[in-house]
Design a protein around this nucleic acid. Structure first.
Lengths: 192, 192
DNA sequence: ACGCAAAGTTGCGTGCACGCAACTTTAGGC
DNA sequence: GCCTAAAGTTGCGTGCACGCAACTTTGCGT
Protein backbone atom coordinates (compact mmCIF):
# COMPACT_ATOMS: atom_id res chain seq x y z
CA UNK A 1 0.00 0.00 0.00
CA UNK A 2 1.36 3.36 -1.00
CA UNK A 3 -0.82 5.85 0.69
CA UNK A 4 -0.15 9.52 0.30
CA UNK A 5 1.06 9.59 3.85
CA UNK A 6 3.66 6.91 3.28
CA UNK A 7 4.95 8.50 0.11
CA UNK A 8 5.24 11.91 1.72
CA UNK A 9 7.07 10.50 4.71
CA UNK A 10 9.46 8.59 2.52
CA UNK A 11 10.02 11.66 0.36
CA UNK A 12 10.98 13.89 3.28
CA UNK A 13 13.13 11.12 4.73
CA UNK A 14 15.06 10.80 1.49
CA UNK A 15 15.22 14.55 1.11
CA UNK A 16 16.70 14.86 4.59
CA UNK A 17 19.28 12.17 3.90
CA UNK A 18 20.33 13.78 0.64
CA UNK A 19 20.45 17.27 2.07
CA UNK A 20 22.49 16.06 5.03
CA UNK A 21 24.98 14.25 2.82
CA UNK A 22 25.25 17.12 0.36
CA UNK A 23 25.88 19.66 3.08
CA UNK A 24 28.35 17.39 4.83
CA UNK A 25 30.32 16.91 1.62
CA UNK A 26 30.37 20.62 0.92
CA UNK A 27 31.09 22.10 4.32
CA UNK A 28 32.49 19.17 6.28
CA UNK A 29 30.36 17.17 8.70
CA UNK A 30 31.36 19.25 11.70
CA UNK A 31 30.01 22.43 10.20
CA UNK A 32 26.54 21.20 9.36
CA UNK A 33 23.80 22.23 11.78
CA UNK A 34 20.60 20.29 12.13
CA UNK A 35 18.78 23.55 11.54
CA UNK A 36 20.39 23.84 8.11
CA UNK A 37 19.39 20.38 7.00
CA UNK A 38 15.84 20.94 8.14
CA UNK A 39 15.67 24.31 6.46
CA UNK A 40 17.05 22.93 3.22
CA UNK A 41 14.17 20.46 3.12
CA UNK A 42 11.59 22.95 4.33
CA UNK A 43 10.82 21.29 7.62
CA UNK A 44 11.26 22.20 11.26
CA UNK A 45 14.30 21.07 13.25
CA UNK A 46 11.97 19.23 15.58
CA UNK A 47 10.68 17.22 12.65
CA UNK A 48 14.23 16.29 11.67
CA UNK A 49 14.54 14.58 15.02
CA UNK A 50 11.31 12.74 14.40
CA UNK A 51 13.03 11.11 11.45
CA UNK A 52 16.57 10.71 12.74
CA UNK A 53 17.71 10.38 16.34
CA UNK A 54 20.91 12.31 15.83
CA UNK A 55 22.63 14.70 13.52
CA UNK A 56 24.84 11.95 12.16
CA UNK A 57 22.19 9.37 11.42
CA UNK A 58 20.83 11.15 8.34
CA UNK A 59 24.27 11.27 6.76
CA UNK A 60 24.95 7.62 7.46
CA UNK A 61 21.47 6.67 6.31
CA UNK A 62 22.18 8.33 2.99
CA UNK A 63 24.90 5.74 2.44
CA UNK A 64 23.30 2.67 3.94
CA UNK A 65 19.78 3.24 2.66
CA UNK A 66 18.38 0.57 0.42
CA UNK A 67 21.49 -1.54 0.77
CA UNK A 68 21.01 -5.10 1.94
CA UNK A 69 23.63 -7.80 1.64
CA UNK A 70 22.70 -10.57 -0.75
CA UNK A 71 23.86 -14.00 0.27
CA UNK A 72 24.02 -16.51 -2.57
CA UNK A 73 22.30 -19.78 -1.62
CA UNK A 74 24.53 -22.18 -3.55
CA UNK A 75 28.03 -21.70 -2.21
CA UNK A 76 29.31 -22.77 1.22
CA UNK A 77 27.88 -20.66 4.02
CA UNK A 78 31.08 -19.00 5.14
CA UNK A 79 32.07 -18.08 1.59
CA UNK A 80 28.64 -16.68 0.83
CA UNK A 81 28.58 -14.55 3.95
CA UNK A 82 32.09 -13.27 3.38
CA UNK A 83 31.33 -12.29 -0.20
CA UNK A 84 28.09 -10.64 0.84
CA UNK A 85 29.72 -8.57 3.56
CA UNK A 86 32.58 -7.61 1.29
CA UNK A 87 30.12 -6.57 -1.39
CA UNK A 88 28.10 -4.64 1.13
CA UNK A 89 31.05 -2.41 1.95
CA UNK A 90 32.51 -2.17 -1.49
CA UNK A 91 30.58 0.53 -3.20
CA UNK A 92 31.17 3.54 -1.08
CA UNK A 93 32.35 6.39 -3.22
CA UNK A 94 34.10 9.43 -1.90
CA UNK A 95 31.52 9.84 0.84
CA UNK A 96 33.26 7.09 2.79
CA UNK A 97 36.21 9.37 3.35
CA UNK A 98 33.98 11.92 5.05
CA UNK A 99 32.72 9.23 7.37
CA UNK A 100 36.01 7.74 8.45
CA UNK A 101 37.36 11.24 9.02
CA UNK A 102 34.77 12.19 11.63
CA UNK A 103 34.70 10.28 14.93
CA UNK A 104 30.98 10.73 15.53
CA UNK A 105 30.17 9.55 12.02
CA UNK A 106 32.49 6.57 12.43
CA UNK A 107 30.66 5.54 15.57
CA UNK A 108 27.31 5.95 13.87
CA UNK A 109 28.44 3.95 10.86
CA UNK A 110 29.81 1.16 13.02
CA UNK A 111 26.50 1.06 14.79
CA UNK A 112 24.74 0.75 11.43
CA UNK A 113 26.69 -2.42 10.75
CA UNK A 114 24.08 -4.06 12.92
CA UNK A 115 21.87 -3.81 9.86
CA UNK A 116 23.56 -6.80 8.29
CA UNK A 117 22.67 -9.06 11.21
CA UNK A 118 19.12 -9.66 10.06
CA UNK A 119 19.94 -10.86 6.52
CA UNK A 120 22.94 -12.87 7.71
CA UNK A 121 20.89 -14.59 10.39
CA UNK A 122 18.22 -15.34 7.82
CA UNK A 123 20.77 -16.90 5.50
CA UNK A 124 22.16 -19.07 8.27
CA UNK A 125 18.70 -20.13 9.32
CA UNK A 126 17.85 -20.90 5.71
CA UNK A 127 20.63 -23.46 5.74
CA UNK A 128 18.80 -25.27 8.48
CA UNK A 129 20.56 -23.98 11.56
CA UNK A 130 18.76 -23.19 14.79
CA UNK A 131 17.50 -19.57 14.72
CA UNK A 132 19.08 -18.81 18.06
CA UNK A 133 22.41 -20.11 16.84
CA UNK A 134 21.99 -18.06 13.69
CA UNK A 135 21.33 -14.94 15.73
CA UNK A 136 24.55 -15.37 17.67
CA UNK A 137 26.62 -16.09 14.59
CA UNK A 138 25.17 -13.10 12.76
CA UNK A 139 26.11 -10.89 15.69
CA UNK A 140 29.59 -12.37 15.60
CA UNK A 141 29.86 -11.64 11.88
CA UNK A 142 28.81 -8.05 12.45
CA UNK A 143 31.34 -7.74 15.26
CA UNK A 144 34.08 -9.06 13.00
CA UNK A 145 33.07 -6.57 10.30
CA UNK A 146 33.37 -3.79 12.86
CA UNK A 147 36.84 -5.00 13.74
CA UNK A 148 37.74 -4.86 10.06
CA UNK A 149 36.45 -1.31 9.79
CA UNK A 150 38.41 -0.35 12.88
CA UNK A 151 41.58 -1.79 11.40
CA UNK A 152 40.94 -0.04 8.14
CA UNK A 153 40.67 3.33 9.81
CA UNK A 154 43.44 2.93 12.34
CA UNK A 155 46.76 4.36 11.24
CA UNK A 156 48.37 1.00 12.07
CA UNK A 157 48.51 1.55 15.82
CA UNK A 158 51.91 0.83 17.30
CA UNK A 159 54.60 1.84 14.81
CA UNK A 160 56.48 -1.43 15.18
CA UNK A 161 53.53 -3.54 14.15
CA UNK A 162 52.57 -4.80 10.77
CA UNK A 163 50.97 -2.32 8.41
CA UNK A 164 48.56 -4.66 6.68
CA UNK A 165 46.02 -1.94 5.98
CA UNK A 166 45.51 -2.90 2.40
CA UNK A 167 42.05 -2.70 0.92
CA UNK A 168 38.93 -2.97 2.99
CA UNK A 169 37.82 -6.18 1.22
CA UNK A 170 41.00 -7.99 2.25
CA UNK A 171 40.59 -6.76 5.82
CA UNK A 172 37.01 -8.01 5.93
CA UNK A 173 38.01 -11.41 4.59
CA UNK A 174 40.79 -11.67 7.14
CA UNK A 175 38.49 -10.64 9.98
CA UNK A 176 35.74 -13.08 9.03
CA UNK A 177 38.06 -16.02 8.45
CA UNK A 178 38.37 -16.99 12.14
CA UNK A 179 34.59 -17.39 12.30
CA UNK A 180 34.43 -19.86 9.44
CA UNK A 181 34.70 -22.95 11.68
CA UNK A 182 31.73 -21.78 13.74
CA UNK A 183 29.68 -21.17 10.61
CA UNK A 184 30.59 -24.58 9.26
CA UNK A 185 29.67 -26.19 12.56
CA UNK A 186 26.28 -24.50 12.53
CA UNK A 187 25.56 -26.00 9.16
CA UNK A 188 26.82 -29.39 10.32
CA UNK A 189 24.71 -29.22 13.43
CA UNK A 190 21.64 -28.70 11.29
CA UNK A 191 22.48 -31.85 9.32
CA UNK A 192 22.98 -33.97 12.40
CA UNK B 1 53.03 5.37 41.48
CA UNK B 2 50.38 6.91 43.67
CA UNK B 3 50.84 10.60 43.40
CA UNK B 4 48.48 12.91 45.21
CA UNK B 5 46.95 13.81 41.86
CA UNK B 6 46.17 10.23 40.97
CA UNK B 7 44.64 9.46 44.34
CA UNK B 8 42.46 12.55 44.27
CA UNK B 9 41.23 11.81 40.79
CA UNK B 10 40.44 8.24 41.67
CA UNK B 11 38.67 9.36 44.83
CA UNK B 12 36.35 11.74 43.04
CA UNK B 13 35.76 9.18 40.31
CA UNK B 14 34.69 6.58 42.85
CA UNK B 15 32.67 9.15 44.76
CA UNK B 16 30.82 10.09 41.57
CA UNK B 17 30.11 6.45 40.76
CA UNK B 18 28.79 5.73 44.22
CA UNK B 19 26.73 8.88 44.39
CA UNK B 20 25.24 8.18 40.97
CA UNK B 21 24.33 4.63 41.88
CA UNK B 22 22.94 5.58 45.26
CA UNK B 23 20.75 8.31 43.81
CA UNK B 24 19.60 6.07 40.97
CA UNK B 25 18.59 3.36 43.40
CA UNK B 26 16.73 5.80 45.60
CA UNK B 27 14.93 7.97 43.06
CA UNK B 28 15.00 5.90 39.91
CA UNK B 29 17.55 6.51 37.17
CA UNK B 30 15.27 8.83 35.22
CA UNK B 31 14.95 11.28 38.07
CA UNK B 32 18.63 11.76 38.74
CA UNK B 33 20.12 14.96 37.35
CA UNK B 34 23.79 15.32 36.61
CA UNK B 35 23.72 18.43 38.74
CA UNK B 36 22.63 16.37 41.74
CA UNK B 37 25.40 13.84 41.40
CA UNK B 38 27.98 16.56 41.05
CA UNK B 39 26.61 18.46 44.01
CA UNK B 40 26.55 15.34 46.17
CA UNK B 41 30.27 14.95 45.57
CA UNK B 42 31.05 18.63 45.87
CA UNK B 43 32.15 19.19 42.31
CA UNK B 44 30.86 21.18 39.36
CA UNK B 45 28.60 19.60 36.73
CA UNK B 46 31.23 20.41 34.14
CA UNK B 47 33.72 18.32 36.08
CA UNK B 48 31.31 15.42 36.13
CA UNK B 49 31.52 15.38 32.36
CA UNK B 50 35.27 15.40 32.54
CA UNK B 51 35.02 12.05 34.28
CA UNK B 52 32.06 10.49 32.52
CA UNK B 53 30.82 11.18 29.00
CA UNK B 54 27.18 10.75 29.88
CA UNK B 55 24.78 10.68 32.76
CA UNK B 56 24.47 6.91 32.54
CA UNK B 57 28.15 6.05 32.45
CA UNK B 58 28.76 6.76 36.11
CA UNK B 59 25.97 4.42 37.17
CA UNK B 60 27.19 1.65 34.92
CA UNK B 61 30.78 2.25 35.99
CA UNK B 62 29.74 1.72 39.59
CA UNK B 63 28.83 -1.84 38.66
CA UNK B 64 31.59 -2.67 36.20
CA UNK B 65 34.42 -0.95 38.04
CA UNK B 66 37.27 -3.16 39.11
CA UNK B 67 35.68 -6.18 37.54
CA UNK B 68 37.79 -8.08 35.05
CA UNK B 69 37.00 -11.57 33.85
CA UNK B 70 39.51 -14.15 34.96
CA UNK B 71 40.17 -16.87 32.46
CA UNK B 72 41.71 -20.02 33.96
CA UNK B 73 44.73 -21.18 31.96
CA UNK B 74 44.32 -24.91 32.39
CA UNK B 75 40.95 -25.82 30.96
CA UNK B 76 40.00 -25.87 27.28
CA UNK B 77 39.78 -22.38 25.81
CA UNK B 78 36.07 -22.32 25.10
CA UNK B 79 35.18 -23.63 28.57
CA UNK B 80 37.48 -21.15 30.26
CA UNK B 81 36.03 -18.23 28.36
CA UNK B 82 32.45 -19.30 28.97
CA UNK B 83 33.03 -19.70 32.70
CA UNK B 84 34.80 -16.36 32.86
CA UNK B 85 32.02 -14.51 31.06
CA UNK B 86 29.37 -16.23 33.16
CA UNK B 87 31.23 -15.31 36.32
CA UNK B 88 31.65 -11.76 35.09
CA UNK B 89 27.91 -11.28 34.91
CA UNK B 90 26.94 -13.31 37.92
CA UNK B 91 27.40 -11.04 40.85
CA UNK B 92 25.13 -8.18 40.14
CA UNK B 93 22.87 -7.60 43.08
CA UNK B 94 19.66 -5.66 42.96
CA UNK B 95 21.31 -2.87 40.98
CA UNK B 96 21.01 -4.99 37.86
CA UNK B 97 17.26 -4.57 37.94
CA UNK B 98 17.62 -0.82 37.77
CA UNK B 99 19.79 -1.17 34.70
CA UNK B 100 17.64 -3.52 32.70
CA UNK B 101 14.64 -1.36 33.49
CA UNK B 102 16.00 1.76 31.87
CA UNK B 103 16.65 1.77 28.10
CA UNK B 104 19.48 4.28 28.24
CA UNK B 105 21.21 2.32 30.98
CA UNK B 106 20.73 -0.92 29.07
CA UNK B 107 22.43 0.59 26.04
CA UNK B 108 25.26 1.90 28.16
CA UNK B 109 25.72 -1.45 29.88
CA UNK B 110 25.71 -3.33 26.59
CA UNK B 111 28.37 -0.94 25.39
CA UNK B 112 30.41 -1.68 28.48
CA UNK B 113 30.49 -5.35 27.54
CA UNK B 114 33.30 -4.28 25.22
CA UNK B 115 35.41 -4.24 28.34
CA UNK B 116 35.72 -8.00 28.32
CA UNK B 117 37.28 -8.00 24.85
CA UNK B 118 40.73 -7.11 26.09
CA UNK B 119 41.10 -9.89 28.66
CA UNK B 120 39.46 -12.44 26.38
CA UNK B 121 41.75 -11.55 23.51
CA UNK B 122 44.72 -11.79 25.84
CA UNK B 123 43.67 -15.26 26.95
CA UNK B 124 43.27 -16.43 23.38
CA UNK B 125 46.62 -14.99 22.42
CA UNK B 126 48.17 -16.64 25.46
CA UNK B 127 47.14 -19.99 24.00
CA UNK B 128 49.28 -19.23 21.02
CA UNK B 129 46.77 -17.88 18.55
CA UNK B 130 47.47 -15.00 16.20
CA UNK B 131 46.68 -11.68 17.94
CA UNK B 132 44.52 -10.53 15.05
CA UNK B 133 42.54 -13.74 15.20
CA UNK B 134 42.22 -13.32 18.94
CA UNK B 135 40.90 -9.79 18.49
CA UNK B 136 38.16 -10.96 16.17
CA UNK B 137 37.17 -13.87 18.39
CA UNK B 138 37.07 -11.67 21.46
CA UNK B 139 34.77 -9.27 19.63
CA UNK B 140 32.60 -12.23 18.67
CA UNK B 141 32.46 -13.38 22.29
CA UNK B 142 31.41 -9.91 23.41
CA UNK B 143 28.76 -9.81 20.69
CA UNK B 144 27.41 -13.17 21.83
CA UNK B 145 27.30 -11.92 25.41
CA UNK B 146 25.29 -8.93 24.24
CA UNK B 147 22.86 -11.27 22.52
CA UNK B 148 22.50 -13.18 25.77
CA UNK B 149 21.78 -9.97 27.65
CA UNK B 150 19.22 -8.96 25.03
CA UNK B 151 17.48 -12.30 25.35
CA UNK B 152 17.51 -12.04 29.10
CA UNK B 153 15.80 -8.67 29.04
CA UNK B 154 13.34 -9.34 26.26
CA UNK B 155 9.92 -10.44 27.45
CA UNK B 156 10.16 -13.45 25.13
CA UNK B 157 9.30 -11.53 21.95
CA UNK B 158 6.60 -13.21 19.91
CA UNK B 159 4.11 -14.89 22.24
CA UNK B 160 4.14 -18.13 20.29
CA UNK B 161 7.87 -18.63 20.70
CA UNK B 162 9.74 -20.50 23.34
CA UNK B 163 10.15 -18.82 26.70
CA UNK B 164 13.62 -20.02 27.53
CA UNK B 165 14.48 -16.95 29.63
CA UNK B 166 15.85 -18.92 32.51
CA UNK B 167 18.88 -17.62 34.35
CA UNK B 168 21.40 -15.31 32.77
CA UNK B 169 24.21 -17.87 33.16
CA UNK B 170 22.33 -20.45 31.08
CA UNK B 171 21.59 -17.83 28.44
CA UNK B 172 25.25 -16.87 28.27
CA UNK B 173 26.35 -20.48 27.92
CA UNK B 174 23.80 -21.03 25.17
CA UNK B 175 24.87 -17.90 23.33
CA UNK B 176 28.58 -18.68 23.52
CA UNK B 177 28.20 -22.33 22.52
CA UNK B 178 27.99 -21.66 18.76
CA UNK B 179 31.38 -19.94 18.91
CA UNK B 180 33.15 -22.91 20.48
CA UNK B 181 34.25 -24.40 17.13
CA UNK B 182 35.90 -21.12 16.14
CA UNK B 183 37.70 -20.92 19.48
CA UNK B 184 38.87 -24.50 19.15
CA UNK B 185 40.09 -23.84 15.62
CA UNK B 186 42.07 -20.82 16.78
CA UNK B 187 43.88 -22.98 19.28
CA UNK B 188 44.41 -25.70 16.68
CA UNK B 189 45.74 -23.17 14.25
CA UNK B 190 48.34 -22.11 16.75
CA UNK B 191 49.46 -25.70 17.16
CA UNK B 192 49.76 -26.31 13.44
C1' DA C 1 -19.25 16.04 0.41
C1' DC C 2 -18.78 15.86 5.58
C1' DG C 3 -16.71 15.08 9.67
C1' DC C 4 -14.18 12.53 12.94
C1' DA C 5 -10.21 9.88 14.36
C1' DA C 6 -5.50 8.75 13.47
C1' DA C 7 -1.13 10.33 12.02
C1' DG C 8 2.12 13.87 11.41
C1' DT C 9 4.20 18.50 12.32
C1' DT C 10 5.67 22.22 15.12
C1' DG C 11 7.14 25.34 19.07
C1' DC C 12 8.56 25.25 23.58
C1' DG C 13 11.01 23.99 27.56
C1' DT C 14 14.50 21.23 29.79
C1' DG C 15 18.57 18.73 30.44
C1' DC C 16 22.75 16.99 28.52
C1' DA C 17 27.46 16.99 26.14
C1' DC C 18 31.32 19.52 25.20
C1' DG C 19 34.70 23.18 23.24
C1' DC C 20 36.96 27.05 25.08
C1' DA C 21 39.30 30.14 27.93
C1' DA C 22 40.23 31.62 32.49
C1' DC C 23 41.67 30.14 37.01
C1' DT C 24 43.55 26.94 40.67
C1' DT C 25 46.28 23.14 42.23
C1' DT C 26 50.13 19.94 42.09
C1' DA C 27 54.87 18.30 40.75
C1' DG C 28 59.50 18.86 40.50
C1' DG C 29 63.91 21.31 39.26
C1' DC C 30 66.74 24.76 41.32
C1' DG D 1 61.33 27.56 49.96
C1' DC D 2 60.37 29.36 45.06
C1' DC D 3 59.06 29.40 40.61
C1' DT D 4 57.36 27.44 36.38
C1' DA D 5 55.07 24.02 33.69
C1' DA D 6 51.72 20.53 33.61
C1' DA D 7 47.36 18.90 35.12
C1' DG D 8 42.84 19.67 36.83
C1' DT D 9 38.60 22.46 37.71
C1' DT D 10 35.14 25.67 36.57
C1' DG D 11 31.77 28.94 34.17
C1' DC D 12 30.04 30.04 29.91
C1' DG D 13 28.10 29.52 25.51
C1' DT D 14 26.29 26.63 21.90
C1' DG D 15 24.00 22.96 19.72
C1' DC D 16 21.61 18.70 20.19
C1' DA D 17 17.90 15.25 21.77
C1' DC D 18 13.45 14.73 23.23
C1' DG D 19 8.95 14.91 26.12
C1' DC D 20 4.83 17.42 25.78
C1' DA D 21 0.89 19.75 24.25
C1' DA D 22 -1.25 22.30 20.66
C1' DC D 23 -2.21 22.45 15.77
C1' DT D 24 -2.58 20.68 10.91
C1' DT D 25 -3.10 17.13 7.53
C1' DT D 26 -4.71 12.71 5.83
C1' DG D 27 -7.67 8.58 5.70
C1' DC D 28 -12.03 6.71 5.69
C1' DG D 29 -16.79 5.60 6.92
C1' DT D 30 -21.27 7.35 5.96
Amino acid sequence: MESLRERKKQATRVALQEAALRLALRKGPENVRVEEIAEAVGVSPRTYNNYFPSREHAIVAALTAARAPEIPPGVPLADGIIDAVVGYYTDPGEAMLIIVTNPALRACYAEAVTGIEGPVAAAITARGADPRTAEVLAAAVAAAARVALRRWVQPAGVPGLVMVSGGLPELIRAALAPLAPALAAAKAHSVA
